[in-house]
Nucleic acid binder design. Structure first.
Lengths: 348, 348
DNA sequence: TAAGCGTATGAATACGTATTCAATTTTACA
DNA sequence: TGTAAAATTGAATACGTATTCATACGCTTA
């Protein structure tokens, strides 16, 4: 029983914790035996396993996942690049991602970016951490960045950004179709003076929603009579935009808001500042169907992004790409649905 | 130039990416030289650094942080154990944690738990990932769990849970004091029939807020005339609790809600279901001061938890514990402030 | 009892990096 | 120009684990 190797007590003072070697010594077996005890389907006798576990308990040993990751070339960590963290829709999405990943044995390393271009800093960091895969929400990958990921062998799935370059996996709600559904909902109920309040102008989600909305109006022989821009998906800015919109004469009789938060701001302004009745004096339709939209005093009619399907599809796509690296590019577009509540006037 | 060592192309097919050895070969230097090029303050000549960087560019090499973590015994990852992820207050807190950590060179590995007892699963996972430290929100650490962290040498800071066992670092808002402030605010404005709507009964935050509120009432010679419980920090349950509360006769003239979400639900019910005016017919005071409370149609008077100070203090405490492991137990209690808006009647 | 085969085991090696140590080169100063 | 000091370099080693390979063991079957 030589003691040439460093003992736990002679390590750096910061971290204690024993290794498989320590366990092996105490149990009177080899380090390999300890490793096998923690490896499913490995060949270990009940006897050695028992000896090992006894030593494990005594030392309070816990496997070092970092070391395992190094040799197995897989961390079981998924990088989650995230913007607009506190926006209700994304708060739900992110939580669902994390939960769904955990259920499949992965953990989420979060990269919070303020602006889309901060992706340039987050991406290298994620790759250096050897994440098994990457989910990017609300930001676009430049072709250079996509290359970097490819070189690192790290699969990426874009969430709710549609960029069909034939190289990047993506899962997105069909925002364009959602815009069309909103148009249909308003036209079929007899509205004629239609308005759109935009969210973040630079985002593809905003663009697609507007394109779908306007193109359907044209198809039916209508024009977009009013347009205002909040400039961001944000209650305060939405409130201000609604104010600019509704002080015009004549007023629109229906407004499609780029998301539910803006829609709620519009409703609050219309009702409590301008004294308008909804939907009698003004119809409002939103996008997302976040939980607050169902509250009694909103009862917002809105285009629903199907949370669950979006999250599941994204994770499925990512795991597929991880497990079969040569899989062809996945571009999944999920249709939204219309949640009909009480903010669109029916009997026009 | 022997080729005994495995070349990148003969590795597992899943991940490519070159190592320092590949770079060293191409640059005609030793692996140590490459390592030093990426180590701040290491001694490398401009010449070799240049050769190395050229090879790095050519190969698209990127350091493997996992391998570095193994040898340096430090991952630069902080585990963030989180509940009630989508509650607005926590969404903001979590985002701020992540941002503040990133600014200090750390990354957040998220562990989402549904119930407090799921900590039992999350904790071992976090420790196995060799996180440098752990922040636990809205959940309590059993003494056994605290022991496990101590054995692993992983510092822990509890956020907004007060358990003075003399062993666990913690940072918390002074919820008890917040309750007292709410009581003062209502009593000083002449209210006499006071109510409390509880949130999650099992949580220490709810308990402390109520204790502070009630004890101050007693001090001033008043009793808590009404009590209802939502059972959770949640709009729908808050709405239902408010309904039970406000159908009683005589009604309270002021209600302290365990958090802003419940307060908003109470306001909505009172105004739009019962036709009450706020604050003329009913005063409402909340807790947290989340951004929506400032919206024009709420203008909620509320006890503010100082986001920034809480987050900074928590991270300071954690980094302190990481860098000087023998630091004595930190128990930082941050006082709340009163944000006076328009939901408490003044002229009684 | 002997042959045969599956099962258990430990030694050795690899993963990609940082760091110590000794040797070498360069610089600074007289 | 010579010498001491400083800066640079590469070989070797360590971090904690999984895994290959060869060996030793135990059991079944004839």
């Amino acid at each position: 029983m030589t003691s040439k190797k460093t003992s736990p007590s002679s390590r750096k003072p910061t971290k204690s914790g024993s290794s498989q070697i320590d366990v092996a010594r105490l149990a009177g077996v080899s380090q390999a035996a300890v490793s096998r005890t923690f490896t499913p389907d490995a060949s270990v006798s009940d006897e050695t396993r028992a000896k090992v576990m006894a030593a494990v308990d005594q030392l309070g040993y816990r496997p070092n996942v970092i070391a395992r990751s190094l040799v197995q070339n897989s961390t079981n960590i998924i990088g989650l690049v995230v913007r607009r963290f506190t926006a209700p829709f994304y708060a739900y999405i992110i939580q669902n991602f994390i939960k769904a990943l955990q259920e499949r044995g992965y953990w989420a390393l979060i990269f919070n970016i303020g602006q889309s271009d901060e992706l340039a800093e987050a991406l290298p960091a994620a790759l250096q951490y050897q994440v098994d895969g990457l989910i990017i929400t609300s930001a676009t990958l430049s072709s250079h960045q996509a290359d970097e990921c490819a070189r690192a062998g790290t699969p990426v799935v874009l969430f709710n950004r549609y960029v069909s370059d034939g190289h990047t996996h993506l899962v997105s709600c069909d925002h364009c179709e959602g815009g069309r559904m909103a148009a249909d909902a308003l036209l079929n109920t007899g509205h004629t003076r239609l308005a759109y309040i935009a969210g973040e102008e630079e985002s593809s989600t905003n663009r697609d929603r507007e394109i779908g909305f306007v193109s359907r109006l044209k198809e039916q022989g209508y024009d977009l009579a009013f347009r205002e821009s909040a400039g961001d998906y944000n209650y305060e800015k939405g409130y201000a935009a609604a104010q600019r919109l509704l002080e015009r004469e004549p007023r629109p009789d229906a407004v499609f808001c780029a998301d539910d938060v803006i829609a709620m701001a519009t409703m609050d302004l219309a009702r409590y500042k301008l004294g308008l009745r909804i939907p009698e004096d003004l119809s409002v339709i939103g996008f997302d169907d976040i939980p607050p939209s169902a509250r009694p005093n909103y009862q917002l009619t809105t285009i629903r992004q199907p949370f669950g399907r979006l999250v599941d599809s994204t994770i499925d796509a990512l795991l597929e790409a991880i497990n079969s690296p040569d899989t062809k590019v996945i571009e999944k577009v999920v249709p939204p649905t219309l949640t009909w509540r009480k903010t669109v006037q029916k009997n026009n």
